[in-house]
Amino acid sequence: MSKIIDQYRVTAEPYYHPVADEVELYEAAYSVRMPMMLKGPTGCGKTRFVEHMAWKLKKPLITVACNEDMTASDLVGRFLLDANGTRWQDGPLAVAARYGAICYLDEVVEARQDTTVVIHPLTDNRRVLPLEKKGELVHAHADFQIVISYNPGYQSLMKDLKQSTKQRFGALDFNYPSHDIESEIIAHETGVSTEIAEKLVSIAERARNLKGHGLDEGISTRMLIYAGSLIVKKVDAHAACRVALVRPITDDPDMRDALDAAVSTFFN
């Protein structure tokens, strides 16, 4: 057991700056093994928060990046053929339930609804996972918890969680941090000066104001860290912002010009 689960332990503290009472609320939720849903825009710190909490609680963390091709078998497990015949291999959800890890389903709405239904028996008082192909019922380990995340800004009638799924979870809302906190995060993660970090955050704030007015999504904290990392490597600030902030989020020439102008305002 230890060899299987030890690879998922978070051994070094992931840096996370609390923005409200999310740490205390999550700790309380974990104490009663409440399934949790993290809602917020791309790149605002949801995954880092889960990693930080797994480290803080000293629990292994199994992360699954959900996608539209993911099947229930990808989560639960399947029979595999090898030289000795067939053998069963647990999927990440089964491993987490069996051995007591936090299972984090990242961007869960990307998965098909018929796939996410398999988590239902684990998110109520039953806390079981039926392995129908194997004929086994896995009773979740006392330490097991399931956490899901998604970006409400992308939800549509075709891509949203069923109410029967949502109501099985407690929820924490995430957003981009305040100017000062985000600047501190950028400076800490990249090594740029506070002055440069504040300029990068100011550029992001201008871009976020354009969400819904030409941009589908604003510049994320993650993207600012990329830009800061390039600047630390002596890349010109304009070029770093062009590569890490502007070009990834839009192909529209006018929007690119507007964002390039914002960069020039702060890095003249």
Score class of each variant (00 low, 15 high):
residue 226 Y to D: 05
residue 226 Y to T: 03
residue 226 Y to A: 06
residue 226 Y to C: 08
residue 227 A to C: 12
residue 227 A to Q: 08
residue 227 A to G: 09
residue 227 A to V: 13
residue 227 A to T: 14
residue 227 A to F: 13
residue 228 G to A: 04
residue 229 S to G: 12
residue 229 S to H: 14
residue 230 L to E: 08
residue 230 L to V: 08
residue 230 L to P: 00
residue 231 I to E: 11
residue 231 I to Q: 07
residue 232 V to W: 03
residue 232 V to F: 00
residue 232 V to N: 08
residue 233 K to G: 06
residue 233 K to N: 15
residue 234 K to Q: 12
residue 234 K to R: 09
residue 235 V to Q: 07
residue 235 V to F: 11
residue 235 V to A: 08
residue 235 V to I: 15
residue 235 V to L: 13
residue 236 D to Q: 07
residue 236 D to W: 05
residue 236 D to P: 03
residue 237 A to R: 07
residue 237 A to S: 06
residue 237 A to C: 00
residue 237 A to Y: 00
residue 237 A to L: 00
residue 237 A to D: 10
residue 238 H to S: 11
residue 238 H to T: 10
residue 239 A to K: 15
residue 239 A to T: 13
residue 241 C to N: 01
residue 242 R to A: 14
residue 242 R to G: 01
residue 243 V to D: 05
residue 243 V to M: 07
residue 244 A to W: 01
residue 244 A to R: 00
residue 244 A to K: 01
residue 245 L to V: 12
residue 245 L to Q: 12
residue 246 V to M: 10
residue 246 V to S: 09
residue 247 R to A: 15
residue 247 R to Y: 11
residue 247 R to H: 13
residue 247 R to F: 15
residue 248 P to I: 04
residue 248 P to C: 05
residue 248 P to R: 03
residue 248 P to Y: 11
residue 248 P to D: 07
residue 249 I to W: 02
residue 249 I to N: 06
residue 249 I to E: 03
residue 250 T to N: 02
residue 250 T to F: 06
residue 251 D to Q: 13
residue 251 D to V: 04
residue 252 D to A: 07
residue 252 D to H: 01
residue 253 P to W: 09
residue 253 P to H: 05
residue 253 P to D: 10
residue 253 P to M: 03
residue 253 P to C: 07
residue 254 D to Y: 12
residue 254 D to V: 13
residue 254 D to G: 08
residue 254 D to L: 14
residue 254 D to F: 12
residue 255 M to K: 11
residue 256 R to H: 10
residue 256 R to C: 09
residue 256 R to F: 05
residue 256 R to G: 14
residue 257 D to I: 11
residue 257 D to M: 04
residue 257 D to R: 07
